[in-house]
Simulated scan of single mutants.
Amino acid sequence: MSTLHSPSAQVVRQAIDWSLRLRQPEVDPRLYEQCTQWRSAHADHEQAWQRVQTLSSDLNSTFDALPGAGQTFETLENSARQLSRRRTLKLLSGTVLLGSAGSWLARDYPAWNADFSTGIGQCQSYRLADGSQLQLNTDSVASLAGPGQLQLERGELLLDCTTPVSVAGRHGHFEAQAGRFVIRQEASRSRVSVLQGQLSIHGVGGPVTQVAAGQHYWVDTKGVQRLAELDMEAGAWAQGLIVTRNMRLADFLAELGRYRRGYLGCTDDIAGLRLSGVYRLADTDQLLAMLPKTLPVQLNYRTRWWITLQRQV
């Protein structure tokens, strides 16, 4: 269990500002000393500084591996130097993006102003004030909207509650008196799975739908649709697992790709191969290396961040 504590958005902006100033050519040596003083003034300053530096390093590594993206981060930096400070912060926070690799930057950049967030490959657990336990899956963002109210802004959550709670999402909002449920928000629809208790789905312009334990629904702007079954266990990720039931290889790789950076896919002739089993997410490279032992496939590494599975020769 992790205790929620992150630097404020203002402190993070200050860290970004210091980082940009120190990247300028011919930096005044006194600026380094001033930055050191700022970092040592408060523990939050140092935490924000380290996160910004880690992000910068990760972005350079990711962009280096992307075709045509070699100059993207450099372009981003150079453009930022020519903009006002306010626009620079927007640029680096992901609201303004440059180049074809912009979506990679948006995906990797942490949601500094959210109450709860996770990076790629990270799952996090939080204890809320009302005693509920919130778990966020990889690359997810949620915020408190009031007592017993959550806003799912991106990704997937699992909520275990003993008091009334509501979750607002892009495609509707969901209410439970008590229970355990998973909500996964995608671009065009959301998936709801009730593990215990009961949940009410309030769709956009439609009637309220009651969901019982063991049931799953898709929710979009057109309505609510019951799913007969899932090809993977809805809440297994909270235990660091993917549990599949006759799942297509292409769908499995798409799911696994949520937990790692870069491209992960397969050729069309093996996309329909099926997997059933329990797979640990702790090391996705090791997981991938095991696939040729159970399926007639081989891994083709274009780079560390660009992997294609093809039929075994």
Rank of each mutant, 00 (worst) to 15 (best):
G148Q: 06
A106K: 15
E77K: 10
W104Y: 14
G146L: 09
D115S: 11
L76D: 05
G70I: 03
L83H: 05
L91Q: 13
Q71W: 00
R81P: 02
P164R: 10
A111W: 11
L136D: 06
A145E: 08
E156M: 03
Q149N: 04
S79C: 11
Y109S: 06
F63R: 11
A111H: 13
P67Q: 09
R154H: 07
S84T: 15
E153D: 09
A114Q: 15
V141S: 01
G155R: 05
L66S: 00
A168T: 07
Q133D: 07
Y109L: 13
L159Y: 00
L150S: 00
R81I: 09
G148S: 14
V165C: 05
R85P: 02
L128H: 05
L66T: 11
G99D: 13
Q151D: 11
R154N: 04
F73N: 08
S79L: 08
G155T: 00
T162R: 02
S93L: 09
Q149W: 07
R81Y: 08
L134F: 06
A69K: 04
D115F: 01
P110F: 10
D139K: 10
S117R: 07
G94N: 10
G102Q: 13
V141P: 00
R86D: 12
D160E: 09
Q133T: 14
R107S: 14
F116Y: 13
H171D: 07
R86E: 15
G99W: 14
N137W: 02
S79Y: 05
A69D: 08
L98E: 11
S132K: 12
E74F: 03
Q133N: 03
C123R: 12
S117Q: 10
L92C: 02
